[in-house]
Nucleic acid binder design. Structure first.
Lengths: 230, 230
DNA sequence: CTCTGTCTCACCATTTCTGGGGAGGGGAAA
DNA sequence: TTTCCCCTCCCCAGAAATGGTGAGACAGAG
């Protein structure tokens, strides 16, 4: 959910391609999940703009089982196989249906270098058999499109403009990593065989590079940007 | 570079498929970058085992421009377009050539939910024109194979067993999320309109559920398990 | 060969977090 | 209905983190 605007001149391409796909497959909706935390749309899709606005306003990003489910998944997934048991999820499902979202869906997660995350989704209203045969027949194509579309969209994601992700030094990476696995400052310093004072220098410089307000924030940012891996 | 062993029974499949690909495309090497931080091999490829061992011993993971370049890239990349300018990179390039690695290569990065990272690489020894026409003709297939192979390999990566994930309560999720974006305890309490004392109860119960040693650890775990999204 | 970045060490005072307690109301599930 | 979990509130003292400043050595890049 981090952004870097590298080249914004491709959105038209995406839009026309997505409409071509929609006609070609006779599928109602084919869409990105425009997963920008600040609400800006950076992907493009065929959903009703009203639904997009409502989705963001209601904070459905944190409720939608499609997003939640795909966020921890490797592979493409059919909506039927997600967890719709919670009350919030059911309310969301109903609201989505009321806004004309298909009852069937298939989503493919894609990730970027700095923890960016996007979904390529096709959805439709039909029965299970019809849907299953569609997804099976077109699985390869969908994966390919997801690959192209999402990765382009990820590059287009708005948010932070110039702030080129500052690389952390090796020591800073070690520091952040050990903090992320629960070590206290004293323990980290001990593990790295340096004084706690030195350690603090690393934490502060990492915090500075990451634009973080405190240690927890710094670790969280380093993780979400993929600069440390835990 | 994280691991979760979900099903190890597919390695054979991968191996035979990769050999089929190798024959089919008449390509010398087609390989994973077995990117396991502990040195265990979890992918499979057609490189000489001696080279694999040497690669790991020498710590080439942190030098190899293919790995470094793809790690911050969205799209597949031809080796020619990478940065081979540093001294270490040239030394690596020579060593690789001495071990029979092709002079041409094409690598596709794929990522997993917890920052896992893998590469699908094809390489060969030939001239530029031949290579370019090969990659152009087979781009789609290569991307598809990369998708299937890498994601399977990522799931096979050794390391940690799947931990049963304790669900966090809504309040706990909010707490962890706000902490992850840099709020102090006082600010979080203020934002949620609760007393700081109450907030502490959430932090502690979240910490308990996540098996975390401190707040930073708890936030890191919640993030890496996808229980909060930042 | 300079310059930039990394790595290492030190002190101060203040703020913040942590780890123990205990307690009541509400809702959902069994 | 009981039980379990979630939400809310309170106290205290010790431990840990933070913010600011300063400085020397060493390496690699231009």
């Amino acid at each position: 959910m981090i952004a870097r605007l590298e080249c914004a001149d491709r959105l038209d391409e995406l839009q026309s391609a997505i409409e071509w796909l929609r006609d070609h497959y006779a599928i109602e909706d084919m869409v990105y999940h425009w997963v920008s935390s600040n609400g800006e749309q950076y992907g493009c899709g065929t959903y009703d703009p009203k639904w997009v606005v409502r989705y963001l306003e209601k904070g459905y990003l944190r409720i939608d089982p499609v997003v939640i489910g795909c966020y921890q998944r490797f592979h493409p997934v059919d909506w039927k196989r997600l967890d719709w048991s919670s009350k919030a999820a059911r309310a969301f499902q109903k609201d989505a249906a009321d806004h004309g979202i298909g009852n069937q869906g298939f989503s493919i997660p894609i990730r970027g270098p700095n923890g960016q995350f996007a979904l390529f989704t096709v959805s439709h209203t039909c029965g299970d058999e019809e849907w299953d045969s569609f997804t099976e027949l077109n699985r390869r194509d969908l994966i390919l499109y997801a690959h192209y579309f999402n990765q382009t969209a990820l590059r287009l994601e708005p948010g932070r403009k110039p702030e080129p992700t500052q690389q952390l030094s090796p020591r800073e990476v070690e520091t952040m990593t050990l903090l992320a696995v629960g070590y206290s400052r004293a323990q980290v310093a001990d593990t790295l065989n340096i004084s706690e004072h030195t350690l603090r220098v690393y934490i502060e410089s990492a915090r500075f590079k990451l634009g973080a307000l405190n240690t927890t924030h710094a670790v969280a940012r380093a993780m979400s940007r993929g600069q440390i891996v835990v």
